[in-house]
Design a binder for these strands. Structure first.
Ligand code: FES
Ligand code: FES
Lengths: 147, 147
DNA sequence: AAAATAAAGGACTAAATTGTCCTTTACCGA
DNA sequence: TCGGTAAAGGACAATTTAGTCCTTTATTTT
């Protein structure tokens, strides 16, 4: 579905949404350790997100990554398309060339509504909204390694 | 979600369910061409399925692969576990170490019911039932390359 | 028996994904 | 202005997944 790279990136951005701002930047090292993800690999992903303006960064002492107002209005979909060259969210679950209701595979009727919902969420909800919902639901803890 | 290998294998078995029996065996080459899948790769998968007694085979002229009664009572889950060493169907969609409702990720409430349904289908429905449903729904065509 | 056929088996290659490491650049504070 | 800090960048390595190819073995037909 999503690559590891993509999952790391999404988690990192949500983590930033919840824990950073222009006055509280976070280093790649710190984020990686909080998310229990390989440092250098995450650093590379953060660079990509930064160059795509999905997150903000500052060099030097006291520097790091954070989200500004524009960044908070991006969507998970923006992250997915930035990291995974070609994403496979609308692929058929059983590998048919095309997933559609005219020629559904045996699990299509289960998979299709799910994919639709998921895509809708990914495309419509901003990072800010996602983060907000997590706070409301008390699911903040889920982003780090302690189950 | 599922590897290509696994998808190929599932499609091949369903294809066999619909088109083969002890008196009408199908060669790897033929199946691969019908499913538009790499021959040698599929052949390897078929060997594995055969050695795991999920499909039947016969060597020599007139030989090939087919499903016997026992084979028809296997499930998609059997195929998945035979091909993908460790499957990732219950992984969290955003890469949390554990997917559960105590610590749901932002898409958990969408993903969880889907995964449950999918797993249930994969584990409960036999190949025979799957194939039957496809015939009833007229979805046979979907297994080959012509959308 | 010989030839043809098709699976069984396994060595090998290719590509994509995941991950590491080192150098450079920019920035801050002393 | 100098030293430390942290991102930017890119080369490189490792692993996993995907796919090919060739040889062997069993079976059938002539
Ligand atoms: S056709 Fe297979 S998931 Fe839609
Ligand atoms: S916790 Fe992420 S899908 Fe369940």
């Amino acid at each position: 579905m999503l690559t590891n790279a993509c999952k790391y990136a999404i988690r990192a951005v949500i983590y930033l949404a919840l824990n950073s701002d222009a006055d509280k930047k976070l280093g790649a090292k710190q984020i990686a350790s909080e998310l229990d993800v390989p440092q250098a690999f995450l650093a590379k992903l953060l660079r990509k997100l930064s160059s795509d303006k999905l997150i903000s960064s500052a060099k030097g002492p006291g520097g790091g990554f954070f989200l500004n107002k524009e960044n908070l209005e991006k969507t998970v979909w923006d992250i997915i398309t930035a990291i995974d060259d070609q994403q496979k969210l609308d692929d058929c679950f059983l590998g048919l060339v095309k997933c559609n209701s005219e020629n559904p595979c045996p699990v299509h009727y289960i998979a299709a509504p799910f994919k639709e919902q998921l895509l809708n969420d990914f495309k419509k909800k901003t990072i800010a909204v996602m983060a907000e919902e997590m706070v409301e639901n008390g699911t903040v803890i889920t982003l780090n390694r302690f189950i």
